[in-house]
Design a protein around this nucleic acid. Structure first.
Length: 739
DNA sequence: TTCTCAGAGATCTAGACAGCATGTC
DNA sequence: CTAGATCTCTGAGAA
């Protein structure tokens, strides 16, 4: 810890330092921040900073950014998750706003028009969004003088690592490369990653709250420091650990390996958590539960609401976004005593708790078909959530062992182990295929295979494995792209086709486009289900797994609607299962756009509202992209059908409601009600009496007024959008006020 | 005849980025 | 170093 002034006065004018000290009450700097400054973040040096969660990495980023802003620079901040991006955006808006600089957020689900991004000083995006913006040749990019890559260890992620790797490679190779600040969890090969980024590695282990790691077995917590603690036996191991910390007015964050385990653990714990609730807390929780249920009335949400009344909740991706946020907030405010989560919360938003409990170190891997131990890095991420900086003197991360030998094993495997080394994920063919197409399509400097090789030489993969294997693989990948008509290769000369460029811009997997083309070329304009099946079959779509109990209904549907599906039913058993899972996915989407209620879909397909949301969102994007691909390749009929379908998926409605649903505040349910009451078009609504509208259930006076206002302002709509407020919440309608 | 319950066998398993044009119940 | 919690089916015995 050092006085802020002592460290910063060299770099910032007095009034800036004063503002940091006084306005933000930062009187001293953490070791993390001191170390980063000493290694040269503020001197423009590339840095990869590895430090625990909550050890002050964000302030390092803010200081570095501020330095650039004061010099007239521009900052690009990359986050791996939308939720993280929007969390940082809020922080930055406040911090940089104080100095007169403007921040924007741009992610897939929340976007401002691209050109206007250039007006801002700090641009916050997800990695993929930044990549996409670059593919659309963001005109402001050359002005960026600092790139901050948060959670760079994502580089090692099988699914998404390559995007970040290629994005960073592009940045490294850009004409006038910006400073790079990488922020990372602890990794095994920090030096290597730093070397790749021309950066100085800075590793700090300091935390603002002491972390004690331990393993529990049979009534005792064994700590890494040799101490131990007896825990009162109230039931199971998990119950004991939770009860023990609640008794001392702490909170517990429990990690369970599956959704089912999370909700069943939460249920078992409710007996204990409820005892620690005060009346006022109980009332608050009741209100919150009511609110959660007002937007989703399905099985899963009901289960959650019921548990919330007892001071516990589960948290996983099946929950709707607002339910998840509610749980996070209630836990932060102390109303919920315990949250049981799947790994969503391990890498997502920071939700610290006095005691973190990891119930199982194994996780089932569907691809491998067996349980594997979770990586050390993931354990460290979960453990790092222990201890709330303002409230707890120390935090505890406890693994549960089932016998004495396992206690020892867990210490060795997790507590005392260093995290794994990061591996480049660029070496897999499908991954490289998409990236190579993107690079060829959008990097104007890449005109020959030699240029491509030179680019690939600069990747993290090449640093580690040399160029040879990558260039061999890239030739193979190129051949495939040429065959697919996405790239033209004349001798050494390399050029994207129009289609290829479009695929890169749409951000879809080249295989998705090729799958679409095969469909368009072999099938005349088709049924709704055919298109949905196509969307589901695409590698960009997440498909539902087929359960034993699904066979019956899937096979009947298949029998009845075989003629609607322009694909052969495969003989091969494994292929057949894939086929059924595409069918199941297509059927869910079909129910969705035919206005089957959400709670019915939840029951029928055994998914949560959050799953429906993410599936429909993905399907909408793919359907739109495929309609674009059809358009570009001259399949007009396919294109227009897919275009309509995409809109229907977005809103979950039949075609006849598309017009109504364009109104703000009107979704699938209210649109249907309006329709049933005879308001079938916007014109009907223009002619309608405002008071008559309020008689329709679900439409109150505020909403009725809003509808009329929107319709009256049709001609002035442009004006409304003209003024750019950035992604600010105030711009949103508060729908609660309609109810 | 119907219900209940124990035991055996079968089943199932985390997460979440992107386009484009505007906003759920 | 490791699969285990939950669902479903079946059949025996009770009501």
């Amino acid at each position: 810890m050092k006085p802020t002034r002592a460290v910063l006065s060299r770099y910032f004018p007095d009034e800036v330092v004063r503002k940091i000290e006084e306005r933000f009450n930062i009187k001293t700097l953490y070791p993390t921040q001191v170390a980063a400054v000493e290694k040269g973040v503020l001197d423009g040096k590339n840095i990869v900073l590895s430090a625990p969660t909550a050890s002050g990495k964000t302030l390092v980023a803010e200081l570095a950014a501020l330095k650039h802003l004061l010099n007239g620079g521009k900052v690009l901040y990359l986050a791996p998750l939308r939720a993280l991006a929007s969390e940082k955006f809020k922080e930055f808006k406040e911090f940089f706003g104080e100095f007169g600089y403007r921040s924007v957020l741009s992610t897939g689900d929340y976007d401002t028009a691209d050109p206007s991004l250039g007006k801002y000083d700090v641009i916050v995006t997800t990695n993929e969004k930044a990549d996409s913006l670059l593919r659309h040749s963001a005109p402001w990019f050359p002005d960026v003088t600092l790139v901050i890559a948060d959670e760079v260890h994502l580089l090692g992620s099988e699914k998404r690592g390559a995007t970040l790797e290629v994005l960073l490679t592009r940045i490294l190779l850009s004409e006038d490369p910006p400073q790079i600040l990488g922020l990372s969890a602890t990794i095994g090969n920090l030096e290597e990653v730093a070397r790749w980024l021309n950066a100085t590695p800075v590793s700090v282990e300091w935390r603002p709250v002491l972390l004690r790691e331990g393993v529990y077995y049979d009534g005792t917590i064994f700590y890494a420091d040799g101490a131990s603690r007896s825990v009162e036996d109230v039931g199971s191991a998990l119950a004991n650990l939770v009860h023990d910390v609640l008794r001392e007015e702490g909170q517990a964050l429990v990690f369970s390996p599956t959704r089912r385990a999370a909700s069943s653990d939460a249920k078992k714990l409710s007996v204990y958590t409820r005892k620690f609730l005060r009346d006022s807390e109980r009332r608050h929780l009741k209100e919150a539960a009511r609110k959660v249920l007002s937007s989703h009335a399905d099985k899963l949400t009901n289960e959650l609401a019921e548990l919330m009344l007892h001071g516990v909740a589960f948290h996983h991706a099946g929950l709707s976004g607002d339910a998840r946020e509610t749980v996070e907030q209630l836990f932060r405010e102390g109303f919920l005593k315990t949250v049981v989560a799947t790994p969503t919360l391990a890498a997502g938003v920071n939700l610290p708790a006095r005691r973190v409990i990891i119930t199982d170190y194994r996780r089932y891997n569907v691809e491998l078909g067996y349980h594997e131990s979770i990586p050390v890095m993931e354990y460290k991420q979960m453990a790092g959530r222990a201890g709330r900086p303002q409230y707890d003197r120390e935090g505890e991360a406890i693994l549960i062992a089932r016998n004495m030998e396992e206690v020892e094993f867990l210490f060795k495997r997790y507590v005392y182990s260093a995290p794994e080394t990061l591996q480049s994920q660029l070496g897999s063919e499908p991954v490289l295929r998409a990236q190579v197409l993107a690079v060829i399509s959008t990097e104007s400097r890449i005109k020959t295979t030699e240029d491509l090789d030179r680019f690939l030489e600069r990747t993290f993969f090449a640093l580690k494995f040399g160029t040879f294997s990558l260039s061999t693989l890239s030739r193979k990948v190129l051949r495939r792209l040429v065959e697919g008509g996405l790239v033209e290769l004349n001798g050494e000369a390399l050029k994207p086709t129009f289609l290829g460029r479009r695929v890169a811009e749409l951000y879809i997997d080249p295989e998705t486009a090729l799958e679409g083309l095969r469909f368009f070329n072999s099938t005349p304009a088709s049924s709704e289900l055919a298109y949905l099946f196509l969307v589901s079959k695409t590698p960009d779509m997440v498909t539902l797994s087929v359960r034993r109990s699904d066979y019956e209904f899937l096979e009947t549907e298949l029998e009845n609607r075989k003629n609607e599906i322009p694909y052969q039913v495969p003989e091969d058993e494994i292929e057949y299962e894939f086929f059924l899972s595409y069918l199941k996915t297509a059927l869910l989407l079909s129910d969705w756009i035919n206005e089957v209620p959400e709670d019915v879909i939840v029951e029928k397909y055994d998914v949560g509202p959050g799953d429906i949301y993410s599936m429909t969102q993905t399907a909408e994007w793919i359907a739109y992209s495929l309609s674009q691909i059809a358009d570009v390749t001259g399949h007009k009929e396919h294109s227009s059908r897919l275009g309509v379908l995409s809109k229907r998926i977005a809103h979950g409605v039949k075609e006849e409601l598309l017009e109504l649903v364009s109104l703000r505040g009107i979704g699938r349910v209210r649109a249907r009600r309006l329709y049933e009451h005879g308001y079938k078009s916007l014109v009907d609504l223009i002619l309608a009496d405002e008071r008559d509208l309020t008689r329709i259930p679900g439409i109150g006076p505020n909403l009725a007024r809003s509808i009329k206002r929107q319709l009256g302002a049709v001609g002035e709509k442009e004006e409304e959008n003209e003024e750019d407020y950035g992604p600010v919440e105030e711009g949103q309608l508060n729908l609660d006020s309609y109810l």
